[in-house]
Design a binder for these strands. Structure first.
Lengths: 129, 129
DNA sequence: AGTTACGTTTACGTTAACGTAAGGCAGAAG
DNA sequence: CTTCTGCCTTACGTTAACGTAAACGTAACT
């Protein structure tokens, strides 16, 4: 039971266009097999796509996501490769941690502003009474 | 002591180009005063710029950041305005919270991959002995 | 045989966020 | 007065990530 999907299956399941899927392939992010002329996607391709989209939502470029996916792919088997991968992973890690703290800053700012807005609103309606 | 800065001051302090600063102004994100022809930035402008850049690092568009800044600006004083602002704030809040959980997912994935790489590395060096 | 449905390639179009000249004004320095 | 500097505007160029359109292949209905 090898689980194969058409390009449309993936497009619907992940809410992206087929154009996007072909584009990701062109950029080396996906490598579906072919049955005749048509693309055939596997479960592994779904995992990769998940990673691409997650990266996107975090503001990563496709090239950056490509790096991450290269890491996930168990084809870099020599020592130099592995060390390089570990470095890349730690780079991403750093960046993500930084992003996390920016998010926390922004969250606390937002809460503060909301409070201020609510307060202004209360005072406004009190004044109108 | 009113603290005024030239465009170059800001560019250097925030590590952006003057072109970017003019562009942000064109898009309504900054509103420096003028002395003759030249722009004169205030402390408030620095706050705004901070918000723009923070938004950028979180993958927000300039338009989205513009909304946030409009909220920060205490010029929307009627009730409808304020309610709208509070809604916007909560929207952003939702999105940021979502982003935060994506980040946590990605962090745990990264850690897992790093472990795997390290393990592969150990096994490789053990095999080479 | 015709047409509907889904797939393919090729290629030009689009938006965001600036980069990069090109040419001009204005005040400080020599 | 000329020559820098530094700032200004105007405007075309650039990259990323697809959108969109054209033109074609093919398998399955009807």
């Amino acid at each position: 039971m090898v689980e194969r999907y058409t390009i449309r299956d993936l497009a619907e399941d992940f809410a992206v266009t087929t154009r996007a899927l072909r584009f990701y392939e062109e950029r080396g992010l996906l490598r579906p097999q072919r049955k005749g002329q048509s693309r055939v996607y596997s479960a592994a391709d779904r995992v990769r796509l998940t990673l691409v989209l997650r990266g996107k939502r975090l503001g990563f470029t496709l090239d950056e996501s490509a790096e991450l996916i290269a890491m996930y792919d168990p084809s870099g088997n020599n020592e130099g490769q592995l060390r390089a991968l570990i470095n890349k992973i730690q780079e991403k890690h750093q960046r993500i941690v930084a992003q996390k703290s920016e998010i926390e800053l922004m969250l606390s700012d937002l809460k503060e502003w909301e409070q201020r807005s609510r307060k202004a609103l209360r005072e406004l309606s009190r004044g109108n009474k």
